[in-house]
Nucleic acid binder design. Sequence first.
DNA 1: AGCATAGCTGACCAACTAGTCAAGAAATTG
DNA 2: CAATTTCTTGACTAGTTGGTCAGCTATGCT
Lengths: 206, 206
Amino acid sequence: MNTARKRNSARQESLGVILHHAEQIFAESGFRGATMQAIADASSLPKANLHYYFPTKLALYREVIQRIFTIWLEAADSFDTSASPREALSSYIRKKMEISRTHPCGSKVWANEVIQGAPIIQDYLQTTLRAWTDSRIEVINRWISDGKIDPVDPRHLLYMLWATTQHYADFQHQVVTLNGGKRLDDTQWEVATMNVTNIILKGIGA
Amino acid sequence: MNTARKRNSARQESLGVILHHAEQIFAESGFRGATMQAIADASSLPKANLHYYFPTKLALYREVIQRIFTIWLEAADSFDTSASPREALSSYIRKKMEISRTHPCGSKVWANEVIQGAPIIQDYLQTTLRAWTDSRIEVINRWISDGKIDPVDPRHLLYMLWATTQHYADFQHQVVTLNGGKRLDDTQWEVATMNVTNIILKGIGA
DNA sequence: AGCATAGCTGACCAACTAGTCAAGAAATTG
DNA sequence: CAATTTCTTGACTAGTTGGTCAGCTATGCT
């Protein structure tokens, strides 16, 4: 049992290493631009070994996308648990900003995919994302009818939340360049988070 | 002279057709994913003809990027000409939303490029964009010291403007999917523009 | 130890793609 | 008309890339 677990964990280890580097390479080069050879090199594995774990490049890509989506959905819980709009949105923005900081590559892969018309993940958009969005729209509409926030269009508020937070991941390179080539430090991330939070909360009268 | 002009205009015609379709294909597939053959087919020209007008794929790509960047810079004039923050920002947001609607492919190509670390246009970022950004930051800072808007970080306000407006181009597919598969109509674009404008203006106390 | 299974890898191939080129068609000029 | 320049195009090449496969090694089991 101990030895069997050893082999199994070695498998998990390999899978993890491959997926981690695949995410980076796909973010850097897009689906087509990424080569299995590049992912193999980054993972310090021979290319044929990748094909042992993932039959095709597409299968590997799908797995990468799946992981990102899961992370985002988990961050979205704040919308339910918190009571007031201020709490709910502050918490959601903060979580999404943190994800932009810690998982920029995942966000980039997702952005790339959507920009290109979501050929691979269309089903996610139509099912899971759609359901999630609809349920949050209800929450926001309740805030409005309770007079807790201004009567804004919930859909566009959501887009604004996504756009502003993911910008720091997807356009990381631009942000860094305009920051004099230096990555944002702890303080700057906090400033960014507070700016986004304050402007949006005040903007909707929360 | 008349004939010479005729030939010259035929040249401009060809260049225009190629650039137009190249923009679409690059947006759909990224730099690497786009093939000269695909662009040729879309333009109804043999591939060798593309290489007559553009020596390399990279040269064609650069030209596409250049055009987008020019359009964006022109939209940015509102910042100077208008006096009050309300006017300046309303006008800028409206223009950027219009560009997102009329030139979504250009925006997507730019996004793709930046996501991948701007390997081709790094010089634009460091020179033109940087200079533009710095000058607008001054304008915003003046608004703040004049007490016309709240003391926000100008940089993050700019990022918010870019992110929210370009979202409707870059994530067009997602927006359309969440809109029941239908493209936004005139009214919906107006609603989107007003929502973005109102929330941001109120958010910064303009 | 001996057998079986999971994991690893170098060498290989078929398909694709950017770019070339030579030969011609069409327009322009003197 | 003839000469010249611009434009067009099918056919070709060199290089790259996803994916295969036969054989290898290491691990686990009895």
